[in-house]
Simulated scan of single mutants.
Amino acid sequence: MTSEVRILPATAERFDDVAVMVGPKNPGANVCWCLSHRLPAKVHRELQGTERRDAMLELCSRDVAPGVLAYVGDEVVGWAAVAPRAELPVARSRKILPVDDLPVWSIICVRVRPGHRGQGVSHALVGGAAEYARTNGAPAVEAYPVDNRGEKVDLTMAFVGVRSVFEAAGFEMVATTDAVAGGFPRVVVRRTFA
């Protein structure tokens, strides 16, 4: 299936597809819009209803998109958020510490639509997000997935990804963390570009 998956930047022109992947069914609902791990906590808490939509639209309107979208045919089936670590709250985390001073990019969310899970979409998203970071000058890209050792991960916490998917995309574990998601420890995985 992964050969049928196309990965494209989440630009303003594709904002309707971004909304399908990270927006609520009710436009005024206070849901994440994949902003909770992108914005400082205070700013995130202050955004209400459609302000969240507007904040994501502003991110998608920048020269560098806030992530990538996965398509099968013309249907959007997945999302991966990726950005320079220095721009994200994880840069200030006390539980996920920097490995070194390299200005890495971070993949902070991977989401696949129901009906398309278990078909290789997350693998395509991780590889596509890494490639997007590389083409935008990243010397390396990191992620902070759970090390679930093959055990089932609760879908509400699966957005951080699982270690095996990243390793299949050429990432290597470079550090442990004090962070936990869904009862599993999170690790730092990294793919460095030549």
Results as ranks from 00 to 15, higher is better:
residue 62 R to A: 15
residue 74 D to Y: 09
residue 47 L to V: 06
residue 67 G to P: 11
residue 87 E to W: 12
residue 70 A to T: 04
residue 89 P to D: 05
residue 109 C to T: 06
residue 46 E to A: 15
residue 84 P to D: 07
residue 57 L to E: 11
residue 116 H to M: 06
residue 115 G to K: 05
residue 72 V to S: 13
residue 118 G to A: 09
residue 121 V to P: 09
residue 73 G to R: 03
residue 63 D to Y: 09
residue 95 K to H: 12
residue 107 I to D: 01
residue 66 P to I: 10
residue 84 P to C: 02
residue 119 Q to Y: 01
residue 36 S to K: 10
residue 52 R to Y: 07
residue 59 L to P: 05
residue 75 E to L: 08
residue 39 L to S: 00
residue 112 V to A: 02
residue 66 P to F: 07
residue 114 P to F: 11
residue 110 V to H: 00
residue 34 C to L: 03
residue 62 R to T: 11
residue 44 H to E: 13
residue 67 G to L: 06
residue 73 G to E: 04
residue 82 V to D: 00
residue 74 D to E: 15
residue 50 T to R: 15
residue 121 V to H: 04
residue 60 C to Y: 08
residue 75 E to S: 13
residue 110 V to D: 01
residue 72 V to D: 12
residue 85 R to C: 04
residue 51 E to F: 00
residue 114 P to C: 07
residue 55 A to T: 12
residue 85 R to Y: 07
residue 117 R to V: 07
residue 80 A to G: 02
residue 74 D to C: 04
residue 79 W to Y: 07
residue 36 S to P: 00
residue 71 Y to A: 09
residue 116 H to N: 08
residue 121 V to T: 07
residue 94 R to C: 07
residue 78 G to S: 01
residue 104 V to K: 07
residue 55 A to Q: 14
residue 104 V to R: 10
residue 68 V to Y: 05
residue 113 R to T: 12
residue 66 P to A: 08
residue 32 C to V: 03
residue 56 M to T: 14
residue 34 C to N: 04
residue 34 C to H: 02
residue 35 L to Y: 02
residue 113 R to E: 14
residue 74 D to R: 15
residue 51 E to G: 10
residue 103 P to C: 07
residue 119 Q to M: 13
residue 94 R to I: 12
residue 119 Q to N: 06
residue 68 V to Q: 01
residue 111 R to H: 13
residue 116 H to T: 04
residue 70 A to M: 04
residue 105 W to M: 08
residue 80 A to I: 01
residue 101 D to W: 03
residue 50 T to D: 06
residue 70 A to R: 04
residue 42 K to A: 15
residue 66 P to T: 05
residue 41 A to D: 13
residue 49 G to N: 00
residue 98 P to Y: 01
residue 101 D to A: 14
residue 112 V to L: 01
residue 50 T to Y: 03
residue 116 H to L: 02
residue 45 R to H: 13
residue 109 C to E: 06
residue 80 A to Q: 00
residue 116 H to K: 00
residue 80 A to V: 01
residue 44 H to T: 07
residue 53 R to C: 12
residue 35 L to V: 00
residue 57 L to C: 02
residue 61 S to I: 11
residue 41 A to M: 12
residue 62 R to I: 09
residue 32 C to P: 09
residue 117 R to N: 08
residue 98 P to E: 04
residue 38 R to P: 02
residue 33 W to M: 03
residue 112 V to C: 06
residue 58 E to W: 09
residue 65 A to C: 09
residue 52 R to C: 07
residue 45 R to Q: 13
residue 95 K to P: 00
residue 55 A to Y: 10
residue 53 R to E: 15
residue 88 L to C: 04
residue 120 G to P: 10
residue 91 A to F: 02
residue 37 H to D: 15
residue 112 V to T: 14
residue 67 G to D: 08
residue 89 P to Q: 06
residue 44 H to Y: 15
residue 52 R to V: 05
residue 93 S to P: 12
